[in-house]
């Protein structure tokens, strides 16, 4: 098996605070891994380092064997890694279709101009996350939190990732929506997508992952099957002692 994503001795300091503390793990191609930990454990910060939104203090990040630390975010996305945001950040004055359109665009000015939008693919992506065709022209202001998360998923999928990092995709969703996004993730796993999923909703997370990693204060505290990890003493203590 090939390694899709690997992180080695990753350290991130924000002034005196160590948000990522000598963290190392690897994800095989096609694998789905849950990343858990209490509030402020450093999960999102790991994502932003993988995407290059924050530069790590030290350590390495490899994507399919290539060290990507020096690449821009756009270049990393072209290499096949993409993320959703815990707080959805849509383009507020654009329709659902246009939001997805931005995700589908090539990072090439000339092609942006001469090639028209792929409206079929826009629709296909919108439908796959559970939008109806009539939702395409709605704007973010008219969407519920659940819809905003779906849009976030669709725009992330639009960039054509091989590895998807999902940050709290279930937060604020109804039971029905959680099932819908869960089904979508299962279907994509079947198609070979690699996932790293952050979720506080452990029940929703469990069926979606092959194994789990728990971190606290930026450092790994447990690794193994989902059950092993959530039954781990240190993990239980961290959740009880955490701000959650």
């Amino acid at each position: 098996m090939t390694q899709a994503l690997s992180i080695t001795n990753l350290v991130k300091r924000f002034g005196g605070l160590t948000a990522t503390d000598d963290l190392s793990f690897a994800i095989e191609d096609g694998e789905s891994v849950g990343l858990i930990g209490p509030n402020g454990a450093g999960k999102t910060t790991v994502f932003s380092q993988i995407m290059g939104e924050h530069r790590q203090t030290s350590g390495n990040i490899h994507l399919y064997g290539e060290e990507i630390s020096s690449l821009t975010t756009a270049a990393r996305i072209r290499r096949g890694v993409s993320r959703t945001y815990q707080v959805p950040r849509p383009f507020s004055e654009m329709s659902v279709a246009e939001n997805i359109r931005v995700g589908l665009m090539p990072d090439n000015i000339w092609r942006m101009i001469v090639e028209g939008p792929n409206t079929e693919r826009e629709l296909e992506l919108a439908l796959s996350v559970g939008f109806a065709e009539s939702d395409l022209q709605r704007t973010p202001a008219e969407l519920s939190m659940g819809d905003l998360r779906k849009l976030e998923m669709a725009r992330t999928m639009a960039t054509g990732p091989k590895v998807m990092l999902l940050d709290e995709v279930f937060a604020g969703l109804t039971v029905g929506e959680i099932a819908q996004i869960g089904d979508l993730i299962q279907q994509m796993r079947g198609d070979g997508m690699t996932f790293l999923i952050v979720s506080h909703d452990l029940k929703a997370l469990e069926p979606l992952v092959d194994r789990a990693i728990a971190i606290n204060y930026g450092a790994m505290i447990a690794e193994g099957t989902f059950t092993e990890v959530i039954d781990n003493e240190a993990v239980r203590a961290s959740y009880l002692g955490g701000v959650a």
């Binding site: 756009a74 028209g116 960039t159």
Partner: peptide
């Protein structure tokens, strides 16, 4: 020109530059 996807991308820069980067586009080049 602004009716093409370039126009959409430039508007996107005005709305949320981080999300433009997060969509795999170089905001600086735009």
């Amino acid at each position: 020109l602004m009716r093409t996807r370039l126009g959409t991308a430039l508007s996107a820069v005005g709305m949320n530059e981080e999300s433009v980067r997060g969509s795999g586009l170089s905001a600086t080049r735009l």
